[in-house]
Design a protein around this nucleic acid. Structure first.
Lengths: 167, 167
DNA sequence: TTTAATTTTCAATATTTTTTGAAAGTTTGG
DNA sequence: CCAAACTTTCAAAAAATATTGAAAATTAAA
């Protein structure tokens, strides 16, 4: 596999993985491209490389910037904007975990809390609803804490130690 | 919020969460319904409750069974099949983690491994590609181990201890 | 067997999500 | 201020995904 093949394989794989994670293909591919590009790229270059439209590129770049994993850069003497991605995968996973927690976990936790707090009425179905939503609430809460703390903080040693311990 | 409202809220929330996690709405809602139902339900009952077609119900039930989180049951003297879900959320998360690892993480890890193994050619772009895909490979590998070991095994105490430690 | 109950399959349809591209908006050098 | 360079917006089109429903397949009771 040469450079060109490897690059394409990486970009397209990252793109499909993104889809599976609720991130659209263009967004994931732009990210992949910037991640392996040694220098910042302009919008034109991204469009050209990935064969996607200007509008698509613009919207997805903006979203990546919102997520905090892509940054704008300006080259002196140039009017065009250039883009570059967060290169530290630790920081990357932290941002992604944060975003997913905010968009997916937090709202679910709220609903589970509300639902599990309805009052008992002595019926089996109500009891089951409360029991199961409570259990899910605890789980979601634990997962949320882990995502925001374990993955988030800089104590990468916890991860490493843990992995060695259980591998 | 009364029982009926709480139930509907739970089912529809679980349904949208599913979508976000790459599980379709019907599948997630069927699962939610079975999870809070004290007794096994027939296909008719599921269709009726969720207002979905027979085909849809059949296909998604089958997938839930494949995932190992829903089971068939037979009532004596009855021809119809009844369905019930895994009620232990610990076991549930284990099955889901396993399935997601198999379908999402494992193939990605393989590609990252292949891509990061292309040979150096002295150019900056090749160096960057190798460096970043190696880093992602390590991360994906760690995540995979954690999903299959920490969430998977029965040592729930690790989770609990860890959460207390870092909360 | 035969038949009736039940489940599965899958082409057609509907829905949702993504992408396009051209018009509108913004920024900056002259 | 004007005009060129560039970016954003968003309605329409395309693509991807999910759902339907009726025909085919399966199962088991009679």
């Amino acid at each position: 596999m040469n450079y060109e093949e490897a690059k394409n394989k990486f970009i397209s794989t990252w793109g499909s993985l993104g889809t599976l994670w609720g991130i659209n293909k263009a967004m994931a591919q732009i990210h992949a491209l910037l991640l392996i590009s040694p220098d910042p790229l302009s919008m034109e270059e991204i469009m050209e490389e990935l064969q996607i439209s200007r509008g698509n590129t613009s919207m997805n770049l903006r979203q990546l910037i919102d997520w905090g994993i892509v940054f704008k850069e300006n080259k002196m003497g140039e009017r065009k904007e250039y883009f570059t991605s967060e290169k530290d995968v630790q920081e990357l996973s932290r941002q992604i975990a944060k975003e997913r927690s905010r968009r997916e976990l937090k709202p679910t936790i709220k609903v589970l809390k509300d639902v599990s707090n309805i009052k008992e009425d002595g019926t089996a179905k109500t009891e089951e609803l409360i029991k199961q939503t409570k259990a899910l609430h605890d789980m979601a809460d634990t997962l949320d804490i882990m995502m925001n703390k374990v993955i988030g903080q800089d104590h990468n040693w916890i991860t490493k130690t843990l992995v060695k311990l259980i591998k």
